[in-house]
Amino acid sequence: MKQAKKNDVIVTQGVTKVYAADGIPVNALAEIDLTIRSGEFTALMGPSGSGKTTFLNIISGLDAPTKGKVWLSGRVLSDMSGNELSDFRRDNIGFIFQAYNLIPVLTVEENVEYIMLLQRVPKAERHERVTAMLEAVGLQGFADRNPTQLSGGQQQRVAIARAMVSEPAIILADEPTANLDSKTGAELLAMMNSLNLETGVTFVFSTHDPMVMESARRLITLRDGQIDTDETKYSG
């Protein structure tokens, strides 16, 4: 059995996912062995249906592999109960989704604050961190707005703030720039890059966006559910 090293935040071993589509088994992932180290800025590339989103879902515990094991910060995800997995995600993983996925009934401030509330962070500290994070993503003055009152780019900034505010070890971003214009996408990418460099948080993107591929320091290409190429451009 593969042993996760101290610096390895994500380790997968023989991860396989088979979906049943109309009763016909479809191999979404096949025997993926991969290690992502702390502080990496990694892009998962590949055509639609290559398994990028499925892989992100499995390494975050949002979905279970059909076969294989995932270690996240040294812990085996399949050994955790539903509540343990929720706690683990809350404390270790930040998510940025293609469709933003903000909670529509909460304001910008409440959306960003939500995870800290689950973590029972004291009110004063929550307020301080939310204010700082909204400033960092350029949304000062938008705290009381509802997500529906924001543009796509602004909503994605809120999503980034939500993912970052609890200071997770890993941020998983599924096509974060797909719904944004290129200027906004570039701004947000630059922001995530600088957060990665400043805080050392590990970023893993799934993307089609050439800008993201250009920014990433490690490029992994998936094809038909298998790793096709794994290239490190330069060490972070």
């Binding site: 949002l62 706690d87 998510f95």
Partner: peptide
């Protein structure tokens, strides 16, 4: 989404 960001079942 709520579950993904850490809300328990």
């Amino acid at each position: 989404v709520l579950k993904a960001v850490g809300t328990k079942p």
